[in-house]
Amino acid sequence: MNEKELEVLRIVEENARVDFNTLAKMVDLKEDEVKSILKKLEQNKVILNYSAVIDWSKVDISEPVTAMIDVKVAPKRGVGFDEVAERIYRFPEVKALYLMSGAYDLQVVIEGKTMHEIARFVSEKLSSIDSVLSTTTHFQLKKYKHDGVVFEEGEEDRRIVVTP
Score class of each variant (00 low, 15 high):
V162F: 09
V27P: 05
V79I: 09
T114P: 03
E42S: 12
V46W: 05
L29S: 12
S134E: 13
R158L: 12
E33P: 01
A74L: 11
A96W: 02
A24C: 09
D105Q: 04
A85W: 01
P164E: 06
S62M: 10
V161P: 01
P92G: 03
R158W: 06
K142P: 00
V161C: 03
T135N: 05
D60M: 03
Y50R: 12
V12Y: 10
K95M: 11
L126M: 08
Q107M: 12
L99P: 00
R90K: 15
V53K: 04
D55P: 01
S101Q: 08
A103N: 08
L48N: 13
S123L: 13
V8N: 03
A24P: 06
P64S: 12
E156R: 11
Y144S: 07
K125W: 06
Q43I: 10
E153R: 10
D147L: 08
L106D: 02
V79F: 02
Q140N: 07
I11F: 04
E31I: 10
N15Q: 11
R77T: 13
E153L: 10
K45S: 07
D130L: 08
V109H: 03
L99V: 11
Q140P: 00
L133C: 01
F20A: 13
G80P: 05
K45N: 11
M68W: 10
L38I: 15
K30R: 14
K58F: 03
V73C: 02
T135R: 01
K95E: 14
V71E: 02
E83I: 00
E3H: 09
M1S: 13
K4R: 14
R159K: 14
V84C: 05
F91N: 10
G148T: 03
S101E: 08
A24T: 07
S123A: 15
R77C: 00
G112E: 05
L6V: 11
L48K: 14
I88Y: 04
V122E: 04
K45P: 00
L6Q: 14
V65S: 03
D70G: 04
H146G: 03
T114W: 06
K95Q: 15
F20C: 08
V53H: 03
A119S: 13
L41R: 07
L48F: 05
D157P: 01
R17Q: 13
P64F: 08
P92D: 15
I160C: 00
I47L: 12
T137E: 06
G102I: 03
H116I: 12
T22S: 15
V12W: 08
E86M: 09
V18I: 15
S36W: 01
A16W: 13
V132D: 02
T114Y: 04
A16T: 05
T137L: 05
D147P: 00
N15C: 08
F91K: 09
I129T: 03
V149Q: 07
M115D: 04
V73G: 02
A74M: 13
E124M: 10
N15F: 07
K25N: 15
K45I: 00
K25H: 14
K76P: 01
S123W: 09
D157L: 04
A85M: 11
V108Y: 02
E83V: 00
D70S: 10
I160E: 12
E5G: 05
S131D: 15
E3M: 09
R120K: 12
I69L: 08
N21S: 13
I47V: 15
G112N: 04
V27S: 08
Q140T: 13
E3N: 15
G112R: 03
L133F: 02
F121Q: 01
Y104V: 03
H116V: 11
Y89E: 09
